[in-house]
Each structure stands twice: as C-alpha cells, then as structure tokens.
Design a protein around this nucleic acid. Structure first.
Lengths: 205, 205, 205, 205
DNA sequence: CATGAATGAGTGTTCATTCAT
DNA sequence: AATGAATGAACACTCATTCAT
C-alpha cells in the first residue's frame, strides 16, 4: 500500500523537487537530473508526468499560486469600516503571503526572473489576482474617503503603493540573505502606523 | 582613426551588449554567441577582453553599479532640516535610480536572479551602498525626531521601509510590463504626502 | 538479447576505440568525436561511462596494463638454476609483452608521451611492476654469481640493462615503421647468446 | 648594436623556446602563445619567421638533429682494430648523444610521439643517420670476425642491438623521472664488459 | 509505470592564423 | 620587423528528450 501511495504522490513529489531546484537556480540553470534526484526518481520518470521542462515549470508555478489566489476571496469581501481595519487586512494578507511564506517569496523571484520566458504566467496572475485585489483596495479607500474617514490624498490613485513595504521587504530578504533579520510583525505594525498617521509630530502638541 | 577608436571602444561595446542579453535572459540562458553578435564581434573577441562568461557578467554589473554608487555622496552629506527635505531627497534618489532608470531596474532583476551564483556582488553592494545609505537615513530621522519635527514612531527602526514604494514600483514594472503605466513623479509625490501626513483626515477638523 | 549484450559491452568497445585513437594521435590530438565514431556510438555516450577525456585515457591505460602486470607472478617465482634459464625467462617475458604485442608497444609510447600529463600512471607502473621485476632479476643474478655460475660483473648493478635490447627493439619498431622487419625470435636468441657468451672468440681456440 | 644583434637572434630564440615547449607537452598540446612568451616575443612574431606551427616544429627538430648527424663522420671513419675499440667507440657515441644529452633525449621522445604527424622527419633521420651508422657497425663487426677477433655470433645480424642498452637507458630516464639515478659511465662500462665477455664464469673452466 | 542508456544539438572556451598598424 | 587585436573553426562537455525494456 505504501508503494501504491507513493506512486500516486509521484507527481507532487516531482513538483516539490522542481520548486526547490528552480527557485535555487532559475529555469535555465536547473537540470532535470537534479530535480529527479531530489524527487528520488529517474529523469525518465519526469517525462511520464510532464511533457517538457517548460510544462513542469508552469505546472509547478500554478500549483504554488493556487492557494494564494484562493485566499483572495476573504479580501474581496471586506467592508470599509475604519481605515485601520482596511489597511490592516490588506497588509496582513500581503505580509502573510509574500513576506512570511518562503515559497511565495521564491515564486515571486522566479516569475520576476522568467518574465520573458513565461509571459502568460505573469499575465494570468495579473488578471486573476492583482487587478481585482487592487481594485478592491482602491474602492475601499475611496469609500473611506467619501465617508470622511481618510483624507483625499494622491496616494489613492496608486493602491499598489500600500503593498510596497511588504513587497520591498520580500525583495530585501531575497537579495540580502546575510543582512540582519527583520521582525515581520514589527515591520507591519510600523508600516500601518506610518500609513495611518504619517511622520507629523503629534498634532496635540 | 575610426578603426583605432573602435578598438578602444570594443570592451565597452561588449559590456553594453552583455547587459542587454543578460538582462533579457538571465545569466544561464544567455549565449555568448548572442552577446558577440549584438556587439558586432565574434565570440573569440569576447575572450580577448574577458576571461569567462562569469567575469563578463561581473564586470558588467560593477560597471553599471558604479555611477549609482558614486551618487551616494550627495545623499550622505544631507542635513536634517525639515522632514520633507529629508524624505524627498531619499525618495528622489531611489526613484531616479531605480524606478526611472531602465538599466538600474534591470540590474536589480539580474542580481535578484543570480543571488546564488554571484553572492559576492550582492554582498559588495550591500556593504558599500545599502548599509551607509540606510544608516544615514536612520540618523537623519532620529535627528529630526530629537528636534521634535517628527513623531517618535516605530517605522524609524526600518529605514528601508521608506524606500519600499520605489522598490515596489520597480518590481511592478519589471513584472507587469503590460500593466497601465504609472506616472513616476505623481507616484513619488503621493508617497511623500502619505509618509508625511498619513491617511488621517485633515487636521483642521 | 543482442542489444542487451551490446549494452554491457559498450564501455569495452569505447575503451578499445580510445586505445586506437589515443595511440595513433596522442592524448591532446585525439578527438572524442573520433573515438565515438570508431566505437559506433555518439559522443554523449562516452560521457555515460567516463567522466572526462582524462578518465577515459587513464581507464584505458590501466585496462591494458592489467594483463601484463598479472603475468609478472610467473616471473617472480622463478628459481635460479642456470644463467640461460634465468635470462631466457626474463627475455621471453619482455619480448612477448613489449616487442611482440602491438598493444603494449603502443602503450609504452603513449606513456612516454604523456609522462607529464599522467605522472601517476607512470609511478604506479613503476612501483607495482618495474621495481619488483628488476629486484627479482637482480636477486637471481646475484644468486647465480654466488653459486659461481656467472662472473662477478659490473652489469649486475644494472639489471634493467638486460631488458635493454627488447625495449630498444620496441622503440625501433615504433619509430622506423618502414625499416626492414626484424625477426623477433632470432633477435632474442641473438641477445641471449651475446649476454651469455659475449663477443669473445671461442675460448677453446 | 645589442638590439640589432637581438633581432638577428630572434629565430634562434624562438626555436629554443619551441624546443622547450614542444618537448614538455608534445606537438598538439603546445600553444604558440607559450612559445612566444618563453621567447619573449609576441605570437605574431613567430609568423614572421615560420609559416606555421608545423614548420616551426620541423625546423626545430632539424636544427637539433644537425650537430648529432655531423658527428657521425667520426664514427664512419673508424677502423676495426680490437673489439673493445669498436664497441667502445659506438657506445660512447650513443651514450654521449642519447643518454647524456638532455636535448637529444627529449628529441627522441618528440619524434617517437609525432611519428604519424611528421613521418618525413623520421624517414630522413633513418636514411641519413641510422642506416649508415648501423651499416658501418655491422661492417666493422664482420671484419673483426673475419680476423678471428670475435666469434661468429647471431647478434652480428642485429647491429642496432648493441645500441639497445643506451637507448633503453634513455627511455628509462624519460619515463621514470623519479627512479634512482644511474651513473652513465658505469652503465656504459658495464655494458661494454658484458658485450665483450658475456656472463660466463671466469675462464678457469 | 518506471527505468536508464543513448542521443545530438548546443554552448563555453581555446588557439592557430591573419592583418592593419 | 614586430605587434596584438580579431577571427573562426574546433573541441570538450552538458543536458533535455527519447525509447526499448
């Protein structure tokens, strides 16, 4: 039975191995030999499940993308109560999925890297994920503004700006592996505070 | 004479071609044949000036890095007058060099991509550029805070946070080439405003 | 079944082809394409069995060396009866393995040629083959001398001198391919006679 | 003047450098860059004096061969007095030129190595040097035999046999560089004694 | 399904040779 | 004569892909 189970799990094991290899070396520099070795199968076996290196890559990306995309439902159903609620919800989502999750982080790098080779993957992601999420954020902010709960400010035209710090932290971690660690929660709280209040000295004073 | 001049310019032409090819395809997928063809020389000529593909890559990165690093001098001599001056100076620097400059933008991608293959390049960059710039920004913010010109806020512990939006915009542009264009100046002004004032409704109220 | 058998024989066929090519052209001038063509496989196949041109060469040398080294056992168990028996045994060995065997002959040339590139091969050969064989010959000659069966002569200090003619004949054949053929048996008998009796006119006279 | 002289000496310096490089690495593995560097000229300069790598090699071989060939005159004018005189004269010649002279020794190796690439060099050498010298030796031995000064022995049919030990010693030194040194004079005297008297026990019998 | 031997197109690198200066 | 930049044909080695078992 365990052998039977293994057989069923083969494709998943290969995808898992593919992720590790691809994210370490990029598409071109990854050898299917290494993927096979890591998945504990032979190179030929990969071709039983995937028709080419390209297909293996695409399948792996889509598989890793799926859970993140699934979670967007939560985001899209948020209501505009207070600025903090809204901003916190979006920040949490991005920090959780980009900054904290190693896999998503590496996936970002991979996509950034293979922008030219797999433009479809990027476009899909953009349409099915980025556009609706950014649209929702923008709508919420405008609603808050209409309610007088936030200023009318130019930044409302650039909703992806609010995700900048998390994205930036992700890139930071990808590049400077030996830089001092940054506490993700503290970073997020700092961003939240900055976004809500800016740098200005306490008005009361 | 024109031939003579060409000779002197060869290495530069090769580096230029190398940048275009490497940034389009990444290190591993770039063929020296293509670099040579783009530089209008033969493959052998590359080896007259560079001892290997690796060395060509490193030399190219360092050459593109140099002007950016050179400009840091200006940043490091800034004095802490008003919050706006300080934040604007740093934002301008990052927007100019990362978001606006295609070459630096592509360079970032390349480094992100080849993090494992050329760790030294990253470390060098980190030590000679990131650490001093971030240190200076933090010092300025603390000074402003000491002078009562800004709040004491948690974000002061994460100076690189202030560069996040520009970095994020850069990544955005690298990934989503077909997304609607974003006006760089307006983006920067929006960020400046957000950082200085936050989302809170007009203080007047 | 025949295909199956071929698979098993592949490495041997490649080694055989490698010997022919290497011995004709030397290490540097031999192209793996030619080795592959001669073995009726593609270049890639060579790398299935050997990790580099160097390893292919070394393996081939060791494989050809092995049978010769194996035969030394016979030599090392000889007893010192008469001078003729002893000298004949050693001469036979060297003539059989060096002068008569084309493969060993070419191997000698190859090693002579690649002395600098593969010093280990030479050293191994020297330690495991030359030293014991020469030691044995010297011991036998000294024993014969002690028994009064041969003179006490300076040549006893240079046992490898007794192999000189066979070695020399080998070199001769390697170099002067178009020189008149020399009858190996007659040559050996001539040497035996010379070594046993010298040039001196019959003492009886 | 010294510069002028240098110019005149250029070809000789290049040939000298060529010998060192060729003899160390063989024809195929020698790079003209290295020859040029050793001769302290640039690669282009080699082509001022030699039209190709092949021609450089051939010229170098012939130049090194010349002095040896010149000396054969002495040998060819010897008269058949005593066996010792004859054998000693020939042994001395071979020991001096092969065993003792590093350059001739290396030359032998080079020719052995490039037998296929430069068959003409070998043939020339064979015709102009080997044939007459061996012919002379054979004639002298036959004359001595006719005079009853040596036995009628089969070895007379293989005159090159008498050069075997020196040739063998040369090969020995080429191959086993780390083997204990052998005293050339003692070796030659041992050979002379062996050839003249054989192994037979003192004439007491 | 799984294997792994075999393939062959492709790529980085070398190096003899040329030639404008 | 001498240079050295430039060439381009070769060559060792790699690796995605195939396929008989």
């Amino acid at each position: 039975m365990s052998v039977q189970r293994r057989k069923t799990e083969r494709p998943g094991e290969i995808l898992e191995a593919a992720f590790e290899e691809f994210s370490q070396k990029g598409f071109a520099a990854t050898r299917l030999d290494d993927v096979a070795a890591r998945a504990d199968v032979t190179k030929g076996t990969i071709y039983v499940y995937f028709s080419s290196k390209e297909e293996l890559f695409e399948t792996m990306v889509r598989q890793l993308m799926a859970p993140v995309v699934d979670k967007t439902g939560d985001l899209l159903s948020i209501e505009a109560e207070t600025p903090e609620q809204v901003i916190r919800a979006f920040l949490s989502f991005v920090y959780d999925n980009l900054a904290r999750e190693r896999r998503t982080r590496e996936l970002i790098r991979l996509l950034l890297l293979e922008t030219d080779r797999f433009p479809i993957l990027i476009e899909e992601h953009y349409e099915t994920f980025i556009v609706p999420v950014m649209g929702k954020l923008r709508a919420l902010l405008l609603e808050l503004q209409a309610k007088g709960k936030i200023r009318s400010l130019p930044a409302l035209d650039f909703p992806e700006l609010f995700l900048g710090p998390a994205m930036s932290l992700t890139i930071w971690r990808l590049m400077f592996r030996k830089a001092p660690e940054i506490d993700t929660d503290a970073h997020m709280e700092g961003v939240l505070d900055l976004f809500l209040n800016g740098l200005q000295p306490s008005v009361m004073t």
